[in-house]
Nucleic acid binder design. Structure first.
Lengths: 352, 352
DNA sequence: CTGAAAGCGCTTACAG
DNA sequence: CTGAAAGCGCTTACAG
């Protein structure tokens, strides 16, 4: 009964100590000072369990992502957590390893822990799993789940914007023959990226040749294999976009091994802008996924729901092209024999 | 008063429901079945706050690392969390961004949340910060804090083992002139690695030439700069070890740019075996830091302390060499003009 | 402006 | 083998 100690020392009731603790107005300055003094002297810290039991809120948020080992997520986690900490909220973080069953478990665990709210930042979500959160009255915010848009607050990322910028860039460099390394079409995100790419292509009046599309597993290895296929095409695309950076990195390695110069003979663009994108050589031109922003909006949405405010509408964020060294001018069919001057560009230079 | 509902439905007292919930022996099978039934029917889940308030334990562990964005940590976090979940323990995870003040805050937050135990997996730790945990009676386990070894259970990683294996490998390939890319000597881990390298060198009867040591910031950029310096040495080392993989990756890029072939003209070895190590080209030979094991031992140590068992002694783990493609035979001074046959090796092949 | 008292939902001696 | 009851440490109407 620790608040009692403080109360005794300050010569007040526990109710008053509680008021001071929670910053309620209407405590006489003298009393306030006395209570503060006692808290200080006793080095008193309130018991969060007792508080939660009483109030019904834990100031605990859940954050579920697909995969900690995927370099896409750390920034998102970091951003989410930083915001939480700034508000005195703690976050229980976990990952599903892309497994829908694990997602179900994660949600259950968090609900049983009575978190106040949950952000689900995975690519695949079964609506059935979310129902338990709804039933328990725990607000949930999602990322990029177009199918569930009306039913759960969702942060959407408009891939098309990024692909449009990427194509603008490639066309300006003289490319017209553009290939694509897709991800498994069973994955929401991979399918969304493929669709967005096709749309952007159409906008620019280009057509996608079926043989210029290869599919990989969204990991480096998949990018390698896909690139092998694309390099064997005749005619060969002069520029290739990948569904994510990891596959672009794999593609880059295969190009190296096949002695196909990037960007001299082939331009390459990734997606996400994970840290590795700027670490490879040549540094990858890529479309940056605004994941810190996604985390921030998701967090804000949860707070809004908790305050009982209605969400205005879903948030739509846009990825943008980051030009680095893996894209360059198309030098014509004879480029292989030419020793073109090496292009120098600033890393991290952004295209407007 | 939800356990009461269950009790009513099963026609028992709340005490009995609690016994069933906690798997206490000595409940009559019939009663047991009735209670289980009621729990099932009502979809009852105990309130963790009430339980914690009563019992004084939260089944919450804290995990503090230096940096989520550092590719070293995800595996460690993953391993720690998986073990926790398997025991019905939730983990609050946070990072200090290498800032001692933040570590202090992180510890305070976790203690105020009344976590049961804390694993501190950062490279820099002020003992002062740990005192608050001691005062609050929260067990703490550390990673690689040699100075605090007697006072806190610690998981140690014996860097020397890894460097010895690396040198064995290089010597077998014919190298004798070996350089080193160090980290800032203000960092515990960087200093430890440097010392271990020197020791290993001495064991092999080699001497370190001062001009063959360059210092970087433990990031890719630092590796680039350090490599530039080393490439300008005359004579030049024929093999270089880096304090971590990120710097090795930077070094690799600089070698590429300077048209120094790896491993043909220069062998390169990293440290840690982060995911990027096997993604670059050539794939990095590196010393694998056993971080999943570190996490597992740290977790086990915490559990042991919580059970009131004394720790036998500190845990010592050993890193081992993983041979990939960035190391090869020393081909003599004239190697630059030779077109030596390309070595093929399996990626991920381990040296025994 | 402040206090007395109920109650959040559990667990655990204690008694039988 | 089971129950009645106290109590973990807070917050919050309610009363004054």
């Amino acid at each position: 009964m620790d608040i009692l100690q403080v109360a005794k020392r300050a010569n007040v009731s526990t109710a008053t100590v509680s008021r001071v603790l929670n910053g309620f107005p209407g405590v006489r300055p003298k009393t306030l000072a006395r209570v503060r003094r006692a808290i200080e002297d006793l080095n008193y810290v309130p018991n969060p369990n007792a508080r939660s039991l009483r109030v019904g809120r834990t100031r605990l948020f859940g954050l579920i992502v697909s995969d900690v080992n995927n370099p896409f997520f750390p920034e998102l986690i970091d951003a989410f957590e930083s915001l939480a900490v700034a508000q005195g909220i703690e976050v229980i973080f976990t990952h599903t390893n892309y497994d829908p069953v694990r997602l179900d478990n994660c949600l259950r665990r968090m609900i049983e822990r009575s978190v106040d709210a949950i952000a689900v930042m995975t690519s695949e979500i079964e609506e059935e799993s979310l129902r338990q959160a709804a039933k328990a009255g725990v607000p949930v915010v999602l990322m990029n789940q177009h199918k569930l848009v009306g039913r759960y607050p969702t942060v959407l990322v408009e891939y098309a914007t990024g692909f449009r910028e990427a194509l603008d860039h490639l066309l300006a460099l003289g490319h017209r023959d553009i290939g694509f390394i897709a991800g498994p079409q069973s994955l929401n995100s991979a399918r969304g990226r493929m669709d967005a790419f096709k749309t952007a292509l159409k906008t620019h009046g280009l057509r996608l040749r079926a043989e210029w599309v290869a599919t990989g597993d969204m990991r480096v290895e998949g990018g390698r294999a896909a690139m092998e296929k694309l390099l064997n095409c005749r005619p060969r695309p002069t520029a290739i976009l990948a569904s994510n950076d990891l596959m672009a990195v794999g593609a880059l390695q295969t190009a190296h091994q096949a002695r196909v110069g990037v960007p001299k003979e082939l331009s390459l663009i990734g997606f996400d802008d994970v840290p590795i994108a700027s670490m490879v050589h040549p540094a990858l031109t890529t479309i940056r996924h605004p994941r810190r922003e996604v985390a921030a909006r998701a967090f804000a949405a949860l707070q809004q729901v908790l305050r009982g405010e209605a969400l205005a509408s879903n948030v739509i964020l846009h990825p943008h092209l980051v030009v680095r060294e893996s894209t360059g001018p198309f030098l014509g069919k004879k480029s292989k024999s030419l020793h073109s001057k090496r292009l120098t560009r600033n890393r991290d230079q952004k295209q407007s």
